[in-house]
Computed example of a mutant assay.
Amino acid sequence: MLLSVTKARTSLVAALTAAAIAAVPAAPALAWGDKEQGFVAGVATAVIVDELLKQGRMAREARRAPRTVYVEPRSTYEPAYRSTSVYATPAAKAFQSYSLSERKAIQRNLRAWGYYRGGIDGAFGPGTYNAVTAYARDEGQSASLRSTSGAYGVYDGLLF
């Protein structure tokens, strides 16, 4: 979520900068001397650089912020380790139903966001499973991976 907000903010700053640059030639440039034009260009540059530095600081702080996770207490005993194969999970079944190009796109997006480190081959294995579960956990959708329909929602979020 933070990544999309940062991208949107950067796009907004870029659009405002482009609009400001486009509006400058429409101003009465002949009435301004070289010093006045240089001053305005300097102020615009300072504002843009300040905003970019501020966004960089905010992104670093967001990465350093500790995450608080509440774990619901279990009413019955469940072993901490289950011997279920990752290939038999609902996430695997949903992943295999996509086309090869869509599976590769899911892996590319997971890699771009720092969750996946394996090869982009479209195959579902432990690396893809760990990346998908980490992504779903960070997006607050870890419960969605318990069903095939929920896994489709997570994958569609990665594709679209």
Score class of each variant (00 low, 15 high):
residue 63 R to N: 00
residue 80 A to L: 12
residue 145 L to S: 00
residue 39 F to I: 04
residue 37 Q to S: 09
residue 152 Y to D: 11
residue 117 R to P: 02
residue 1 M to L: 15
residue 96 Q to T: 13
residue 118 G to T: 01
residue 122 G to P: 12
residue 148 T to H: 08
residue 36 E to Y: 05
residue 147 S to A: 06
residue 70 Y to S: 02
residue 137 R to C: 02
residue 125 G to M: 07
residue 61 E to A: 15
residue 150 G to C: 00
residue 129 Y to T: 04
residue 150 G to F: 09
residue 69 V to P: 08
residue 12 L to V: 07
residue 85 S to V: 04
residue 153 G to Y: 09
residue 117 R to F: 05
residue 157 G to V: 01
residue 148 T to Y: 07
residue 58 M to C: 06
residue 103 R to I: 07
residue 34 D to E: 10
residue 51 E to F: 00
residue 64 R to Q: 03
residue 52 L to D: 05
residue 107 Q to V: 14
residue 122 G to H: 05
residue 89 T to R: 08
residue 130 N to W: 08
residue 62 A to Q: 12
residue 36 E to R: 13
residue 142 S to K: 11
residue 3 L to N: 14
residue 53 L to S: 08
residue 12 L to S: 01
residue 104 K to M: 14
residue 157 G to P: 00
residue 109 N to I: 08
residue 100 L to A: 11
residue 86 V to C: 05
residue 80 A to K: 12
residue 80 A to C: 01
residue 9 R to Q: 11
residue 89 T to D: 01
residue 15 A to D: 15
residue 9 R to W: 02
residue 83 S to E: 10
residue 80 A to R: 13
residue 130 N to L: 12
residue 17 T to K: 10
residue 5 V to M: 11
residue 114 G to P: 13
residue 65 A to Y: 02
residue 101 S to H: 03
residue 39 F to Y: 09
residue 75 S to A: 14
residue 49 V to Q: 14
residue 40 V to N: 09
residue 142 S to T: 02
